[in-house]
């Protein structure tokens, strides 16, 4: 879509069906994908504002940086694997043109989701360790930001897992293959997005 071309048209000058008899969506992709891109943009705004708040709050004198727990590296690796599984699942389903519960693509997507659950468990245990070590929320704003940022990221992932769960159910019941494939692709996109967000957050937490 050329937005510039569209908004410089003089609509009062033409009568008829300028683009033929087919309806012309702005983007040549399924509506779900368009909505996902818009949602991801929206979520990016949310995370950027959190990052900006982090930097502003950091400048106040009482800030004591939190030492990055080593376990976060492990969790990051798990999330990378999770994203990779989804990616391979999509490639596989494109190659074979179909996706079933027991097929390669189906198993990869199952693994992707389970790895994401593992990531969430890992994040939970990191929080537990930090709390046990006395790095409570009230102690310092840096700690509070750690729980806030990781928490909101996990919440987004949980939303993704809900869609993933429905897609798995659909696969298991052998329902509409096209819908299942679309769900799979949406999951892959969303997982990559959340991986990028996590990479930024992790860098932020580790470097400051």
């Amino acid at each position: 879509m050329s937005f510039y071309r569209d908004v410089t048209r003089k609509p009062w000058n033409t009568v008829g069906l300028p683009e033929g008899i087919e309806p012309r969506p702005a983007f040549n992709m399924p509506n779900e994908k368009v909505a996902l891109i818009i949602f991801a943009t929206c979520a990016s705004v949310l995370f950027s504002l959190l990052v900006v708040s982090y930097f502003i709050r950091m400048t106040v004198g009482d800030w004591v940086p939190l030492a990055t727990p080593t376990m976060l590296w492990v969790n990051t690796g798990v999330l990378v694997l999770s994203s990779l599984c989804f990616h391979l699942a999509v490639l596989q389903s494109r190659k074979t043109g179909t996706v079933r519960f027991g097929s390669g693509a189906g198993l990869l997507s199952l693994a992707g989701g389970l790895l994401a659950v593992l990531f969430i468990a890992g994040q939970y245990s990191v929080s537990g360790q930090l709390l046990a070590a006395g790095h409570g929320l009230r102690v310092n704003a840096a700690n509070a930001f750690f729980y806030l940022l990781t928490g909101i990221h996990v919440l987004h992932l949980l939303g993704g897992l809900w869609v993933w769960g429905r897609a798995q159910l659909r696969l298991a019941l052998g329902a509409n293959v096209d819908r299942a494939r679309l769900s799979l692709e949406l999951c892959a996109w969303y997982w990559h997005f959340l991986l990028v967000i996590w990479a930024i957050l992790f860098y932020l937490l580790a470097s400051t």
Binding site: P18, E19, G20, P23, P25, A26, F27, N31, V34
Partner: peptide
């Protein structure tokens, strides 16, 4: 995405 045909 869903505008009808002709509706630019």
């Amino acid at each position: 995405q869903a505008r009808t045909r002709g509706l630019t």
